[in-house]
């Protein structure tokens, strides 16, 4: 009488996907809280154009491009896996990880030049927000890269479901940056 702990899920519902969406909902509230606080402060202080002018828009634009490209490769990894491709997912996932690391490298260069120019988290409220928001985002990018590396290393790419879940998270991290970039650099 063999019974399985893997209870049969209700047809059409993938538990992993449901779980990831609930997780992302709480993540949205985390960044939502930060972004809402930032907006309220910014309105209250009449704009931070002076401070924001010290940020490098070109570097951030390049970084945005890097991150968007990584989302594209993530989609490709999932698409090729669904087609049953053997090498495709591997290549595209590796590219996604590399692009994520490139994002972090460029961000680190940006931090270094800002700190050398004398802008630290303690310089003022704008800089407190800038370092906290981008830092928390960078941690999420790092976490995404780690998750992708585990998938790549464990060689569990034949099941596209896992790639899809990792992709959901990766795209979420990407979307957060799409909010942060204009808020911090352009506004």
């Amino acid at each position: 009488m063999a019974i399985s702990a893997e209870a049969p899920a209700i047809p059409g519902i993938l538990p992993g996907k449901v779980g990831v969406w609930w997780f992302l909902a709480s993540e949205i509230m985390l960044f939502g809280g930060l972004i809402a606080s930032f907006i309220v402060f910014r309105l209250g202080s009449g704009g931070w154009h002076g401070e924001a002018a010290h940020l490098s828009v070109p570097i951030a634009a390049v970084n945005t491009l890097v991150l968007l490209t990584s989302s594209l490769t993530m989609v490709q990894a999932f698409a090729t896996a669904e087609r049953g491709d053997q090498r495709g997912p591997r290549t595209y996932l590796a590219l996604t990880i590399l692009l994520g690391l490139a994002f972090l490298g460029i961000k680190a260069y940006e931090y270094t030049s800002e700190i050398l120019a004398g802008f630290t988290p303690g310089t003022g409220i704008f800089w407190s927000f800038y370092y906290t928001m981008t830092g928390l985002h960078a941690l999420h990018v790092l976490a995404g890269a780690v998750v992708n590396s585990i998938l790549l290393g464990a060689g569990r790419l034949r099941n596209p479901h896992r790639l899809e879940l990792a992709g959901l998270y990766w795209h979420f991290v990407d979307v957060v940056w799409i909010f942060l970039f204009p808020l911090l650099y352009l506004a």
Partner: peptide, 24 residues
């Protein structure tokens, strides 16, 4: 799940205020 996010954000800010001297 939907309410704890902003508090985590607030707690991160509090910890940074205490440790690295941000000004939240």
């Amino acid at each position: 799940l939907l309410s704890v996010g902003p508090l985590i954000a607030g707690a991160v800010m509090l910890l940074l205020d205490r440790i690295i001297g941000t000004h939240f």
